[in-house]
């Protein structure tokens, strides 16, 4: 699971291009969306859905799944882990 979280952090930094942060700055429980977290927006959500599919072959099909998966890095890792197992 730790490896999965690290991979997600690397994807967020390298591919979503979160400005001014390194993977080490990202905390597992940090919200991905909203001003009190990483501040991603709906266009970033599109990218994230595509990247999760591309890197993990897991589809996030609707906002209910999105709410569960996109709460934080830890919840996204959990979601992917559950879908893969």
């Amino acid at each position: 699971m730790e490896e999965l979280k690290e991979k997600l952090k690397r994807i967020l930094i390298d591919e979503i291009k979160i400005q001014g942060m390194t993977p080490a700055d990202l905390k597992d429980d940090m919200p991905l969306f909203g001003d009190d977290g990483l501040g991603l927006d709906s266009l970033d959500a599109v990218e994230l859905v595509v990247l999760v599919q591309k890197h993990f072959d897991v589809q996030i099909a609707d906002m209910e799944e999105g709410k569960e998966a996109f709460a934080s890095i830890a919840s996204l890792a959990n979601y992917i882990h559950q879908k893969k197992s």
Binding site: L43, M63, G66
Partner: peptide, 15 residues
């Protein structure tokens, strides 16, 4: 008007 402006559902539909 839903969360993320419906973009997650739209992305999944296109996929």
């Amino acid at each position: 008007e839903g969360p993320w402006g419906g973009m997650i559902e739209a992305t999944a539909a296109l996929q």
